[in-house]
Simulated assay, not measured.
Amino acid sequence: MNTFYRGRRLRRNQALRTLMQDVSLSSNDLIMPYFVADVAEKEFYKPINSMPGQAQYSIHSLLKRVEKAVKAGLKACILFGIPSTKDSCGSQGWLETGIVQRAVKALKSEFPNLIVVTDVCLCEYTAHGHCGVLSPNGEVLNDPTLELLSKVALSHAIAGADIVAPSDMMDGRVAAIRHALDQQGFENLAIMSYAVKYASSFYGPFREAAESAPQSGDRKSYQMDFANSSQALLEAEADVNEGADILMVKPIGAYLDILRLLHDNFSLPLAAYQVSGEYSMIKAAAEKGWINEEAVILESLIGIKRAGASLILNYFTEELLLKGLVK
């Protein structure tokens, strides 16, 4: 008579292992980030050195890139804009003719079934690189920034975005954006809030990709301290109460415990952002031959799903779809 657990019975071949999986990964789980630049050159494609395989695109080049991904099964993307000019308040961020606004219109015209998410922030558009309005002494001013973020979100909604995603970490921004959208008849437009966004060193390559590095100081006064978990619940609860439809944790690799914390305390769908630094580290290790790239990508994403994510924003999405590793 057996007196011990024989777990190997359900792991002895691939068919059994697949049948027994608690979670799985599909194209419905993944959101691909794209960087679109306001340039005159039609075929513009600028590789991002710190993110092998990623680039800035003109709208024309973006459409060609997305077409291949959609044919491979891409369901959703998120857009980050690189404007032609910047100023102290980020005014390019809410122009009807802004780069993200034009890109949204083009994508929705060509691929009406593609879910287009837009990042709502000012850091890509301000000359100082911060996510809000600066005081004369360099402090990021919370409440004056809310009006500008609402204008950005509304301009994205008018352009045809399916979801707006505020990433700035200003207090009260979800309520301000929800009010602005509802007032203009966009009450059915979803908000995916970067509810728990940490001041992280893993964002390094993104600064190059989005050309959004702060010109002075850092973002620790408004992004979360990575030593704190209790504040994550407070931030998420505030966004739920203000009208968020989806909550996001960013970054995710070092914060799976935070994702599980939100999963256990809230009923909204959860998104997780596997950020640029996480992507670049996997790519660098794979280039050195130290890891099996495809295996590590899948393991990391399954781990994020297992921790509670409904959606994963990550730069591997295209690659996984084009190679048929995810259906």
Results as ranks from 00 to 15, higher is better:
residue 178 R to V: 01
residue 231 Q to H: 07
residue 71 K to F: 07
residue 78 I to N: 02
residue 41 E to Y: 14
residue 25 L to G: 12
residue 1 M to L: 10
residue 238 A to M: 12
residue 115 I to C: 15
residue 162 D to K: 09
residue 300 S to C: 10
residue 120 V to R: 00
residue 194 Y to Q: 03
residue 250 K to G: 05
residue 87 D to A: 06
residue 9 R to C: 08
residue 298 L to V: 07
residue 103 A to Y: 02
residue 155 S to T: 03
residue 289 G to Q: 06
residue 271 A to C: 11
residue 163 I to R: 00
residue 141 L to Q: 15
residue 145 T to I: 03
residue 18 T to N: 12
residue 270 L to K: 10
residue 4 F to D: 01
residue 85 T to W: 09
residue 206 F to D: 01
residue 38 D to Q: 13
residue 314 N to K: 05
residue 150 S to K: 05
residue 281 M to V: 03
residue 82 I to Q: 11
residue 272 A to H: 07
residue 154 L to P: 03
residue 29 D to N: 15
residue 51 M to V: 02
residue 306 R to E: 03
residue 242 E to M: 04
residue 322 L to N: 08
residue 177 I to C: 10
residue 241 N to H: 12
residue 96 E to P: 08
residue 234 L to H: 13
residue 292 N to F: 07
residue 64 K to I: 00
residue 283 K to G: 04
residue 43 E to T: 13
residue 16 L to E: 05
residue 287 E to F: 13
residue 150 S to Y: 04
residue 264 D to K: 13
residue 14 Q to A: 11
residue 120 V to D: 00
residue 280 S to L: 00
residue 262 L to T: 02
residue 101 Q to V: 01
residue 228 N to M: 05
residue 16 L to T: 04
residue 325 L to W: 14
residue 164 V to I: 15
residue 240 V to R: 01
residue 79 L to Y: 08
residue 192 M to T: 03
residue 97 T to W: 11
residue 169 M to K: 06
residue 236 A to I: 03
residue 200 S to C: 05
residue 4 F to Y: 11
residue 196 V to G: 02
residue 311 L to K: 12
residue 178 R to K: 14
residue 143 D to R: 13
residue 130 H to K: 07
residue 17 R to F: 12
residue 31 I to V: 14
residue 76 A to S: 15
residue 4 F to S: 07
residue 145 T to E: 09
residue 189 L to C: 09
residue 235 E to D: 13
residue 131 C to F: 08
residue 276 S to L: 07
residue 95 L to H: 12
residue 104 V to D: 00
residue 50 S to V: 06
residue 149 L to P: 02
residue 269 P to N: 04
residue 24 S to Q: 10
residue 252 I to E: 01
residue 52 P to R: 05
residue 47 P to C: 06
residue 186 F to W: 06
residue 64 K to H: 14
residue 264 D to Y: 11
residue 325 L to Y: 14
residue 18 T to S: 09
residue 277 G to F: 06
residue 34 Y to K: 03
residue 64 K to A: 10
residue 82 I to M: 09
residue 308 G to L: 01
residue 62 L to H: 02
residue 62 L to G: 01
residue 159 A to G: 12
